[in-house]
Structure formats: C-alpha cells, structure tokens
C-alpha cells in the first residue's frame, strides 16, 4: 500500500504527525512523522533511551503526547481513546498478567474489559494458538517465563486487534522460547499491522518489511528491509547511532 498512487486515499493503520514527548525538561521524542500501512510490519531499532518504548507507549495511549497527533485507522487517538484502544493489542516484556489468577481467569478478565463476544470459545481459541490450552488452569505465577509470555500473546490477540504493538517481547526469554513466541505471533493469521521494537537486528530484519532507526528522539533512518543485508544494517545502525548494536 502506497500513499502516492493518487486514486484512492488510503487510510493509514498508524499515522503519526509531528509527535513530541517531553518529560519535564528532557525531550524523549523530538518530532516524529511516519506512517504505517494496513497490514504492514515495521521494526524500530535504536539504543536505550532513543525513545522506542516512549513511542510504543504513546501509540498504546499509556502516555499522552506533549504535542503532535496520532491517528489510528484514521481516527485520532486522543479524541476517541477508548474506541481506538479496541483495535490495538500490546505485548511488552511485562506480561500484564496477574500471577495469583489462572491463565483462564486472566484471559476472562481481559476479555470482559474488551467486550469479547463468546468469551469461552475465544479464550480456548487463542490459548490453542499459543499452545497453552492444557495449562489454562494453572496459576500464572507457577508457569515459566516463556509460557507466561505466550499467555501474554494470547491476551493480546483476544479481541482481534488490527494493530499489534510489540515492545521487546523477547526480553528474558531463551532462544527456543523466543522462536516459539514469534511462531505463535505470526501464525495468528488475520495479518494485523505490526510495530515491533527489538534489540536483535537479525530478527527484526527477518520478521518485518520496513525498518526505522531511532536516535536521540528522532528518526535517523527508514527504509525497506527487503534489499538490506544484515551487514548493511549493522553499518547503517552504527552510522546513525554511533555505537555498536
């Protein structure tokens, strides 16, 4: 999907205009403009403190921008926060799950908050998708980190979001668990729009169609991942950020 084909004016899944965010007197984001098409997947790289997490939190409406606008599927996030949040699913390195409740109870809780129709069936469905159906009756606190993260993905998929935000979801997972995680996420079907932040250049490059490098609260580079090799990316990253990835 491209913006300049003239005939149809496409509705961007995510449209960010002049976004800034300051914390007191320090600027975390200094004017971000970018668009993500429907069903597109974008990976955001950048060193710690570049503003990746801030950007995700702004998109998830956990934070409010200092200035600028975010449109989700053409609607302003600020003005229709509750409606727009329905279209967004979030997975971070924190699972958002209550450790004293079972997996099913957690999913039940979130599906009520999202008004998910036919809750029981949907919970079974997403649990099966992440391979956790047999462990739904265990308390989340007793599950391994990888299993908890898979449940977290189930939680994110419950309400069939059209946009999925992933903020370093693989943190604290081993190689195998990470591989399962990505498999679960990408096998969800329904081809949602995905925005991912990760430290792993390799994985980001493999998984997403477009990449973005953030440095000092600005977009330092953006382009397609298709023609880019890992070595090229390493060089570009180093050039933009000034340090080894």
């Amino acid at each position: 999907m491209t913006a300049d084909n003239g005939k149809v004016s496409p509705v961007w899944a995510i449209d960010i205009q002049g976004l800034t965010k300051s914390f007191g007197n320090s600027l975390a984001l200094r004017g971000i403009d970018f668009q993500v098409g429907q069903g597109e997947s974008v990976v955001i790289f950048g060193p710690n403190g570049a503003g990746k997490t801030t950007l995700i939190k702004l998109l998830a409406s956990i934070m409010n921008p200092t200035s600028g606008k975010i449109l989700i599927n053409g609607r302003s996030l600020k003005d229709n926060a509750e409606e727009v949040r329905r279209q967004i699913g979030v997975v971070t390195h924190q699972t958002f799950l209550y450790s004293h409740l079972t997996g099913r109870e957690n999913l039940e809780f979130y599906s009520r908050l999202y008004d998910v129709p036919r809750r029981r069936e949907r919970i079974d469905e997403v649990a099966a998708l992440v391979g956790m159906k047999s462990r739904l009756h265990d308390r989340v606190g007793t599950l391994s980190r990888g299993m908890q993260q898979r449940l977290s993905i189930a939680r994110c998929l419950l309400h069939r979001p059209s946009i999925i935000l992933l903020d370093e979801p693989e943190t604290g997972l081993d190689q195998q668990a990470t591989a399962m995680l990505w498999q679960a996420l990408w096998s969800a079907g329904e081809s949602p729009t995905i925005v991912l932040t990760t430290h792993s250049l390799e994985r980001g490059l493999a998984l997403c169609e477009r990449l973005l490098i953030l440095a000092w609260g600005r977009i330092a580079y953006q382009g397609s991942t298709r023609a880019l090799g890992l070595d090229d990316l390493r060089r570009t990253y180093q050039h933009c950020v000034g340090i080894e990835p």
């Binding site: 998830a60 509750e82 949040r85 971070t92 699972t95 958002f96 799950l97 209550y98 908050l113 939680r155």
Partner: peptide
C-alpha cells in the same frame, strides 16, 4: 502493588476503558 508487578496497570490502561 499487584498492578505493578507484571505491568498490569499498563495492561489496564491499554484496555478500552476510561
């Protein structure tokens, strides 16, 4: 405190509720 443990408060904040 339970809302902070696994970032649950943020989980609530991304839900379509005020």
């Amino acid at each position: 405190i339970p809302e902070k443990e696994q970032g649950c408060l943020e989980g609530l904040m991304v839900c379509p509720i005020s």
